[in-house]
Write a protein that binds this DNA or RNA. Structure first.
Lengths: 130, 130, 130, 130
DNA sequence: GTGGTCTAGACCACA
DNA sequence: GTGGTCTAGACCACC
């Protein structure tokens, strides 16, 4: 699993971890049933406070993405891919709603926005599978 | 000028004020050269602390949206509409970029997204946001 | 007399008036014994509050630049040119001291500074008699 | 880091802090990457309100001199020495321009000014500003 | 009247 | 522990 943090970002680190974990799941880097690094390992790897990793893990467990078996470790839930996918799509839609609302306010037309989207999808085609 | 605060929002009050002021400018509620309510008036109107309003006003001045004349008050800058418009469009594009990036990651296709956007633009057509 | 104000400047307006009056004296636009516009005239001309002009005039009188004859008006003092000149030179020296102090701190050498000054004197040779 | 406040100065405290921090950087007292005292520490050390220190710190962050890591503290940015140096030299030049402009207005010649500068550089050679 | 600065003290999220 | 936000209330210079 590949977690990339931006320490200077004003987004909380635990949020960045959550997002990156989900991204790893969506990209198939980790699969349902896989064991994830322990809090200690992860905190060592990222050189962040264990409490911060713990907070991220707890949130992921609360969301049903992780399951913890006492004494054995933390694992990716079953069906997690679909779960995460649905949630992300839902989130995406909400963000799109917001953008459209702003676009209307700012005076950007549907047509303009369509062209942007079109181009943006092209631009990114070959990029960053990271 | 109409400022609507959402006390439950996690965005700081001064940020909400900044955004609402910009929205008012974009909607043409206030124009270049107009005097804006004094810090005290606004703070009374919103029932928030004058310092909070002051913080928002200073940030708006730093951004070039407001100009203040010592002892006279605070005014909307000239050319502000264009300025704010450009910035907002730029911001919008960045957000759209992000969404498209996420969409690709999540597996939402361009076609799906286009349909969303189409619908969202329709939905909002007749609505009244205060 | 030619007074140019920058209303958006964060320097107080009364200070700007004082400086501009002195500049006019140094440039010989007004001479010892000349009558200066009344507070009302000046405030009308500059479209600023009469109190502001009054404050500037009082300060100039306190400094010995203006003399007021009750009922007759306000006049430029005798020997004012020399007076203002001396003070300005003194002020200039103080500012130069500060700059040199900063230069040393920042690591700008005497030689560098000499070259700047040289060039700056040239640059401005033909400019802005305003 | 050594911050010296002059309570009688007309410059706001937060400005003095900003200037002193930059001076410390230029003198090499603090280096890129160093952690700076926390807002609370500094406010205790200077016996000023934490908000005042916070204001200075935020401005320094906005200028790119400081970076803050959430919950960890505030640090000197990388490349800060060069950054600050360049800005200070730029500022110095602007001030020198102003002085030369005034000098011309007041009738101080290039030669006179050169002599001043020469002397001022000597004067300060052996001095100790804290 | 205006905005600018500062203090004292509080609560919060984050690491 | 850290910084971020907010309130309440004060004093100041300026117009």
């Amino acid at each position: 699993m590949h977690i990339l943090l931006e320490p200077t970002s004003h987004y909380p680190i635990y949020e960045q971890i959550i997002q990156q974990v989900k991204a790893n799941i969506l990209r198939g880097v980790v699969m349902a049933g896989d064991q994830v690094p322990s809090v200690r390992e992860m905190s060592a790897q990222l050189t962040v406070n264990p409490n911060t990793v713990s907070k991220a893990y707890k949130e992921l467990e609360r969301e049903g993405v992780f399951v913890t078996y006492r004494g054995k470790g933390t694992f990716i839930s079953e069906d997690v891919q679909e779960l995460v996918h649905k949630r992300e799509v839902k989130l995406l839609k909400e963000q799109a709603e917001q953008i459209v609302a702003t676009a209307k306010q700012v005076g950007v037309t549907k047509e303009e926005m369509m062209i942007w989207i079109e181009e943006m999808f092209k631009e990114e085609e070959g990029e960053a599978h990271d």
